[in-house]
Design a protein around this nucleic acid. Structure first.
Lengths: 334, 334
DNA sequence: ACCACTCATGGAAACGATTCCATCATGATT
DNA sequence: AATCATGATGGAATCGTTTCCATGAGTGGT
């Protein structure tokens, strides 16, 4: 099927064809100094032979692999897909390849993937961290150039995150303004920042604190559905739910339908992350939009442009009001 | 910030620590023959020093980079995100890293990305091809091990594709059974297979052929919306639309709303690719489900397991009836 | 007791690039 | 005219691994 796998042109052959030494070829091709005459000869020979320098040789000598590693919990989640798109978009303009891994929010899998990346001598990594900060100590000690995206678990690693505090506060204030007092937060693991912001917001508005009002799911759709259904079923007193991501939001809508809980009549719903279908949904979902693509792009910039790196870049979120929130019902459901 | 970038342990140091030669270490670690005694010494030394072989050195020597390249048109599109997930899932079980690039369905960008991959000596590639078959000749000649996914543009390259013919036929038959005769296909570039299948299905059912009933969009959401709006606006006689992907379907629903065309009363809609939100949509969308994840998984298997490779794997699609199709209206719109 | 044969073992070459360093030519300065 | 500075150039070392090949030890057979 495939041909005789034609051998690759090496720098030695180019040198021979141009009648110069390999060192000169290398210099010309990587912008070193050379006389106009030899430069031309080398360039001509390289073009004629269609020479492509092998990244393998270069990387071995340079002791580092170009390219970026990217670790996301779930590429199927629109938020992380867009984040990935941002990374790829920035990396492309630098001509850097990106190696993607999905962690499923499992610290063990994450560690395994980091291991693979280190084995490849990859020295730049963008990650949506699953585990706690401790886990990253060995990777950092190995000289890995890490940037966190979406979540921040260590102060000594540059991070690009959405403004969770403001986003949560906006959502809670909006719901409180509608008269809601029992507001639940439906989140996934790894959102400690947001849960903290949620509790703070609840407290600052003088609403009743209740630890059971934050529910956690794992990263699968099944787990999200179970968490949403559990919340709606066991807490008929909550009148508003904040879903901490589009998968959670989707699960909440589905669970509400199944349980015959109407949105927004019976319970109001705000979803983190604006996705195209939020508008198509019935009812159209009120959301806190997050700049997923920007987060990825900025993280890639940070990891590619070494040097002065701000500890944390925080990107604004935005409340988009549609039709999934209404005034508090006067009598509790059921 | 980052520490003194501790130097990497090399095989030479392990050999020294174990009191053997480097060749022996290499043999032990890659499963060659060695006496039980030395094997143990080597393993102990490697463990003690936390030795990780450098993929760089290995790859240079072996003249090939492990890992898989993956080229998709748009990672933001749920279909390709799921396909990617399938590839990653299979690759993970082999411990192979995956390098992802997005082509935007632009043959030029695609060629550029292939170049980058070849530069990395990557020799395995899974691609959703954007251009025509010709484009791939150089890559194949370079000894690249290619598998196509989702689309098949060359007979001499193994491909994993959904059963477009059956899927389209099912959709057209379903709509015809509802009484529709003017059925439009809203597709994107690169779907020549499906367009051919569409024309064949129309013909086989004795429906009027009309070339203008297939409309093409580029891969952006804007382009999809424009195409959908154009179709609905200029062809009030079509009573049913088949959208060739979830982005197109989304655009069709949006455009229909904007133009006050009601689904399914005014026009019926079938969307290719089942996505979670299809059920949440108003109305819930009737779809032709495609096994996106499976396509990716199978393609990865094919590219990883060399040897006997079937020319084409075709995976079944499935009609999922929801609420976006109705009987043909008796009077044309407007 | 000698030969043939197997098997573990380590030295060294190879992969393809970059880069240090020595060499040589040329032009400028004393 | 001799010396020095400058700059272009090519040989060779280097990166970390795998693998070829030679060596030596040990075993069994005649």
């Amino acid at each position: 099927m495939s041909g005789p796998a034609q051998r690759r042109i090496t720098i030695k052959e180019v040198a021979e064809a141009a009648g110069v030494g390999v060192a000169t070829v290398s210099r010309v091709l990587s912008g070193g100094s050379a006389s106009a005459e030899t430069r031309e000869k080398v360039l001509a020979a390289a073009a004629r032979l269609d020479y492509r320098p092998s990244a393998l040789g270069r990387n071995l000598r340079r002791q580092r692999t170009g390219g970026i590693g990217l670790l996301v919990p779930d590429i199927t989640d629109s938020f992380y897909a867009r984040l990935t798109d941002g990374v790829l978009s920035c990396a492309r303009s630098y001509g850097e390849p990106v190696t993607v891994g999905v962690t499923g929010d499992d610290p063990e899998r994450e560690a395994e993937l980091i291991g693979t990346l280190i084995e490849q001598s990859m020295d730049r990594l963008i990650a949506v961290p699953s585990g706690d900060g401790e886990m990253w100590a060995p990777a950092l000690r190995a000289g890995l150039n890490v940037v966190f995206a979406d979540r921040r678990v260590r102060a000594d690693v540059p991070s690009v995150v959405p403004d969770d505090r403001a986003g949560v506060l906006t959502a809670v204030e909006y719901l409180a303004g509608l008269g809601h007092r029992k507001i639940a937060y439906l989140g996934r693991h790894g959102q400690s920042q947001r849960v903290a912001a949620f509790s703070a917001a609840i407290a600052s508005l003088g609403l009743p604190a209740d630890r059971d009002l934050v529910v956690h799911a794992r990263s699968s759709r099944d787990s999200a559905y179970a968490a949403a259904a559990g919340l709606l079923q066991h807490r008929p007193d909550v009148t508003a739910v904040i879903a901490g991501g589009n998968v959670l939001g989707e699960a909440a809508v589905l669970a509400a339908r199944e349980l015959d809980v109407r949105i927004p009549r019976d319970v109001s719903l705000i979803m983190f992350d604006d996705v195209p279908w939020a508008e198509l949904c019935s009812p159209p979902l009120t959301v806190i939009a997050q700049p997923a693509q920007d987060i990825g792009y900025r993280a890639a910039e940070l990891v590619l442009r070494q040097g002065r790196r701000p500890p944390t870049v925080t990107l604004p979120t935005q409340l988009v009001v549609r039709a999934s929130c209404g005034p508090k019902v006067s009598v509790p459901r059921r």
